[in-house]
Computed example of a mutant assay.
Amino acid sequence: MIGRLMTMTAHAGRGGELAAVLLRVAERLHGFPGCEIYLISQDTADPDTVHVTEVWRDDASAQAALATPSPANGPAPEDVLALLSTAPHRTDLTVLGGVSLPTGDQP
């Protein structure tokens, strides 16, 4: 499994709007093959900062999700990018296990 932590900073006062768009992305990923976790969180101390915690079965699953066209009723990647005041920060992870994750050949 692989993981990603995405930190996104919205334009001032638009963190709630960013979180709402990302929650719509999460809805679309519900049941997507290989998507184990797609969690949206808003920073308590700075509501314009939104975090996305992702866990994927493998990199191919994550890439397939990115390559899937957005539905006509959105949201599209441009909708997220338009709300950001800076480029998102991405941290790549090797997932070792945890609560509610499938078991398998992980250490």
Rank of each mutant, 00 (worst) to 15 (best):
A65H: 04
A60K: 04
P77M: 06
V25W: 05
P77H: 08
T91N: 15
P75Q: 12
G34C: 00
V52C: 04
V25T: 11
L96I: 12
Y38F: 05
S41K: 07
P75Y: 10
D46S: 15
G31K: 01
S70N: 11
S41C: 07
G97T: 08
A45C: 07
E27P: 01
P102W: 02
L84D: 12
A60M: 03
D92Y: 04
T49M: 12
L81S: 14
G98Y: 01
T91K: 13
T53R: 06
D58T: 03
D58Q: 02
L96E: 13
L39Y: 14
D105W: 02
E78T: 14
P71I: 01
T91A: 11
I40F: 03
N73E: 13
D79N: 06
L29F: 04
L93I: 00
L101W: 04
P71K: 12
I37N: 14
S100H: 05
D58V: 03
T91Y: 05
L101G: 09
A45S: 06
F32W: 05
V80A: 11
G34K: 03
V50N: 06
L81H: 15
G74K: 06
G104I: 00
E54Q: 15
A64G: 05
G31M: 01
D105N: 14
R28V: 02
R90I: 08
S61Q: 11
P47L: 05
D46H: 08
R90Q: 07
A67W: 00
V99C: 14
E54L: 05
L66N: 10
H89K: 10
T44L: 01
E78Q: 15
A82N: 15
P88E: 05
T49W: 03
L101M: 09
P33H: 00
G31N: 01
P77E: 10
A67E: 10
C35I: 08
L39I: 09
A26E: 15
S100G: 03
D92E: 14
S85L: 04
V99D: 15
D79M: 01
Q42D: 08
P107M: 09
V52P: 01
P47I: 05
A87E: 10
D79I: 01
L83G: 06
T68Q: 07
G104F: 00
T53P: 11
V99G: 11
H51F: 08
H89E: 06
F32K: 12
V52H: 01
H89W: 02
D58C: 05
R24W: 15
G104Q: 00
V21I: 02
G98F: 04
T91Q: 09
P69A: 09
